[in-house]
Design a protein around this nucleic acid. Structure first.
Lengths: 356, 356
DNA sequence: TCTTAGCACTCCTCACCTCAGAGTGCCAAT
DNA sequence: ATTGGCACTCTGAGGTGAGGAGTGCTAAGA
C-alpha cells in the first residue's frame, strides 16, 4: 500500500527519540482524546526520561508546529502538521486479518442491480466497519462506453430509451417525441445506433451525432430523422453528473470533537451539497493508492476537525472511482487506512469479475 | 382540508376565555420558544384580565393536562395534549397565497425520470419551504400494474429485464440465466408475457406465473421454458420494498428543542432505519387529508419532541403514497399544514397528468 | 552538553455561594 | 368571579476559592 501525501511539505529531521515521543503522544491522544502531558509520556512512553526532559522535547515540537497546548496547563495535542508527520513517517499500519478480508469480500460481492446500489452497499460497509461516514463515488460517466441502446414505445408520444453502458450500468430515459413512432421504426433506429456507435465512448457518440448529423438534417431519410430525434434526447441530457453515496453520517455525531452542533450541521449540508466533496474526491481519482487529508488540508472549510481517507478503485488500467471515509481527525488511522485500501481493491476485483 | 385526529380523545368543554388564553399561549410559545407567564398573557392576550386571574386559568389548564411548568417559576408550556387540542379546535389555518401555490406547482411539475427522482424533488421542496425535514413515501408497489416487459441480452448468461409499470415507473433487473439466449427467443418470451399479463396487477402476475406454470414445468415447450426462467427472476425479487425519501434533515439541527445530540442521532438513525417511519406512514395512507402526530402520539420513541404532518396523495380513486414533514413539536402548524396539504394535491395532479 | 530535580506560575475545573428576576400560589378584599 | 398583595420558589449569571494538572525556567549533576 502506498500512502501519498497530497500536500508534500518539508519536514525538518527529528532525532529518533523525538520521533518516538511524538508517535506515542499522537497515538495516546487518538486513544484517549485528552491532551497528553509530560508526566504521562515520561511514565508510559518507555524511554526512561524525566518529565522535565520530555517537556523540553515537547517545547521543541511545539516550536516546529507539530503540537500545540490548548492552554497553559493542559498537556499537548497534535496539530494538523503533527498528524501529517505522524501519518507520513511514524505510522505503522496493521495489515488486515485475512479472515476479515474474506468477510469484506463476501459483503461486497453481492449481486447488485445498479452502480448506485453497489455503491450504497459498499459505503454502508465502510461506515459499518470503521464507525465513520463512508463515501463511495460512483464510476465517472466520462469514461463510459455505449454498449447498447434500445427504444420502447410507452404511449403515443412517449418513448423509453434504455442505455446499457460498460456492460453493467443501465440507464433509463423517458423521451417526449414530436410524433408517434411504432415499434418497428424504433427498432430500426436502435439497430442503426448500435451498429454505428456500439462500443464507443459516450462523449464521442454525442459529439459525432450532434456535429455530423445536425448539419445534414434536412437531407435525411425517414429512418435517419427518427434516429436523430431519438438520439438527441437520449444523449443530450448530460447523463446525471458525477455523484456519490454517503452512509453512516450519524456516526459522526458521536465524536466529541465534532460536538459543535453548528459545525456538524455545516458538515452534513456539505454532504448534501456534494460539489465541494466531489471536487475533493476528483483530486484523488488518479492518486496511486490511499490518500489522506488532515483537517483543512483539503481546502474545504467545513472539514475542519475532520480527516478524509480515500482510495481510487479501478479495473485493469481504467480508474472507475474513489471511495473512502470521513471522520474526526482524531481517528484510528492504523485501522482505517487498511480498511479503505482493501475495500477499494475488493471492489475493483468484484467489478472486474462482473465484466465478462 | 380536513385534519383528522389519529388518537381521538375526549376533551372537556372549555369556556371561550380559557380557549382564547390557551390559543394565545400556544401561539406565543411557538413563536418565541419561551415558557409563557401570566403577566405576558394578561398584557398581550387582549382580554383585559389581571395576571392573577390568568394564573387561575393556567392552573386549571395545567390540572387538565394541557400545560405544564418546566419549574416553579417559569411560565407554562403546552403539553402534547395541549398541542392536540390546539390543533384540533383552536387552530385557524392560513390558506396559501395562490401565487405561492403556483410556485409550488411549477417546482413539482418538472419532467422526472423516475418515481424516486420525483419523490426526491418533492421532498426537497417540502423541506425548503417549511425549513423542516420533508418526507415523500414512494408509490406503494402493491398496486402496480404491469404495462410492459422487455428482455435485452447483455452477454452470454446475462439478460437485462425492463419492467414498465403504471406507465411511468421503469425498473431494471439484471438476470443471470442458466443458458445463453438469443435476442429472438427473448423477444418471443417478452411478447408472450406482454400479451398474457399486460395491464394486470403485478402481484397477480407473480401469483399466476408461479402457481400455474410451476406445476406444469416439465411439459413445457422451449418457448415456455424461456418464459418461466425469465419471469421467475424478473418478478420474484419482491420489487424493492416500500421506501421513502427524506430531505432537509439538517434543518432539524437548528431547533433548540432538539439540541440534545444523542436524541438527534437517534432520530437520524430512525430516518435511515426506515422501518418505524414506514409503519407510521402506512397508517396515514388511507387517512382522508392531513394528519398530525404530536410528540409520542406516533408511538415512536425517537419522535419525542417532534411532530409529523402527513397527507396522502392519490390519482383518481387510487391512493399512491404519503408525503409530509417532520419537525419539532414547536412548529408553525398554521403554515406547515396548508403546505403539506397543497403539495399532496399538486403531486396528485401532476401524476394524474402524466398518465396518458 | 545533555539531563534532571525543584519551584514558581498559570490556567482550568468544580463546587459553592449570592443575588436579581421572573413567575407562582394563595389569601383577603372588592 | 376578579383582583392586589405577598411570601415563596426556582433559575441563571456572576463571583470566589481550593485543588490539580501541567508548564517554563533555573541551577545542579553526569
Amino acid at each position: 500500500m502506498q500512502i501519498s501525501d497530497p500536500t508534500p511539505a518539508g519536514h525538518p529531521a527529528l532525532n529518533e527519540r523525538t520521533q518516538h515521543l511524538l508517535k506515542f503522544l499522537v497515538e495516546r491522544y487518538i486513544r484517549d482524546g485528552q491532551p497528553v502531558g509530560s508526566r504521562t509520556l515520561s511514565r508510559d512512553a518507555g524511554l526512561d526520561l524525566s518529565s522535565a526532559t520530555v517537556r523540553n522535547v515537547m517545547a521543541d515540537l511545539e516550536e516546529l508546529g507539530y503540537l500545540r497546548a490548548p492552554h497553559t496547563s493542559a498537556g499537548r495535542v497534535p496539530t494538523a502538521r503533527g498528524y501529517r508527520f505522524f501519518i507520513d513517517t511514524l505510522l505503522r499500519v496493521k495489515p488486515l486479518d485475512p479472515r476479515e478480508i474474506e468477510v469484506l469480500r463476501r459483503r461486497i460481492d453481492q449481486p447488485a442491480q445498479s452502480g448506485t446500489e453497489l455503491a450504497r452497499s459498499v459505503s454502508d460497509l465502510l461506515s459499518g466497519v470503521t464507525r465513520l461516514a463512508g463515501i463511495v463515488m460512483l464510476p465517472r460517466r466520462q469514461t463510459m462506453t455505449l454498449r447498447q441502446v434500445e427504444f420502447l414505445p410507452l404511449s403515443e408520444r412517449r418513448v423509453l430509451a434504455i442505455l446499457v453502458l460498460n456492460g453493467q450500468e443501465v440507464q433509463n430515459r423517458i423521451i417526449q417525441t414530436r410524433r408517434a413512432y411504432d415499434a418497428a421504426e424504433l427498432q430500426r433506429a436502435a439497430n442503426y445506433l448500435n451498429a454505428q456507435f456500439g462500443g464507443q465512448d459516450i462523449q464521442q457518440v454525442r459529439k459525432t451525432l450532434f456535429e455530423e448529423l445536425r448539419e445534414t438534417r434536412d437531407h435525411l431519410d425517414r429512418l435517419m430523422q427518427t434516429v436523430v430525434e431519438m438520439a438527441e434526447q437520449t444523449f443530450e441530457s448530460t447523463p446525471e453528473s458525477d455523484d456519490y453515496v454517503v452512509a453512516g453520517q450519524t456516526h459522526l455525531m458521536q465524536y466529541a470533537d465534532l460536538s459543535d452542533l453548528d459545525k456538524l450541521r455545516q458538515l452534513f449540508e456539505a454532504f448534501n451539497q456534494k460539489s465541494d466533496l466531489l471536487h475533493l474526491f476528483d483530486q484523488c481519482l488518479h492518486a496511486d493508492g490511499v490518500q489522506i487529508f488532515v483537517g483543512e488540508e483539503s481546502g474545504c472549510g467545513v472539514l475542519e476537525g475532520c480527516s478524509v481517507v480515500t482510495a481510487p478503485y479501478s479495473t485493469g488500467d481504467q480508474v472507475l472511482g474513489v471511495l473512502g471515509i470521513i471522520g474526526p481527525t482524531r481517528m484510528a488511522y492504523d485501522r482505517v487506512i487498511p480498511v479503505v485500501d482493501v475495500t477499494a481493491r475488493l471492489l475493483a476485483e468484484v467489478l472486474d469479475g462482473q465484466r465478462d
